[in-house]
Amino acid sequence: MTTPTVTTEMLHAFVDGHLSDADRARVEAHLATHPEQAAEVADWIAQNDALRSLFPAPDQAIPLPEIPEAANNPRAPWRMVAASVAMLGIGVALGWAGRGQVPVDPAPLDVAGLVQEAMVAHAVYSADPHRPVEVAASEEALLIRWLSNRVGEQLSAPDLRANGFDLVGGRLLAVAEGPAAQFMYQNADGVRITLFAVRSDNSMMAEFQFRQNGSTNSFYWQDDHLRYAIIGDLPRNDLAEIATRVYNTLI
């Protein structure tokens, strides 16, 4: 035994090139007298080589994305990123909403109808003092599994505690597009907001839309899999902040 202290960790570090010259020499000496371990290490090296061949380093420089506060950076946007489109969408939607206008919907989808349904469900259930949700947040795992199964897409209830909203629970809704999920949140003042999600089979770019109906505001967006609306009796800017958080959590 030339080296009594060659550990499994050292063998990994040997394969991954994390050893000093001295330790590498010790491992090599050890392997020379331990053929089974040497075969194992040889296989690990072959695995590493295969992984590096399968997934080579990028062959082009990767530019940094544009973000709003870096607007003075002269580089052109490298590509359309859904998130930045959505962030822009909020700004645009707020701009439009500020003029009391509703953005024109270029899609053949019945966004207005869907948002209307989500708003009605919000009005009905957020005002219900006794049974606002079918499954409470205390059974969140069950809630998520159940609603995901029924809606037909994996859902999640975003954590909105940073905005002061706790999850109350959720329920299943029946809308024209099919089964939909409604997650309800509540803040310390008892203000409730609902997140509505229904499966979408189109593959549109994400987009944000803002709607207002009396004191109830809503944001709507969609991705490849789901169409969402977030609804609440909150000032537009507060709701926009929450919508942004939800969007960023769900991407």
Binding site: I62, E69, A70, W78, V81
Partner: peptide, 14 residues
Amino acid sequence: ADDLVQDCAERALL
């Protein structure tokens, strides 16, 4: 991978 890295870099900047 392109999209993921751009999302990640954007988030890191923000």
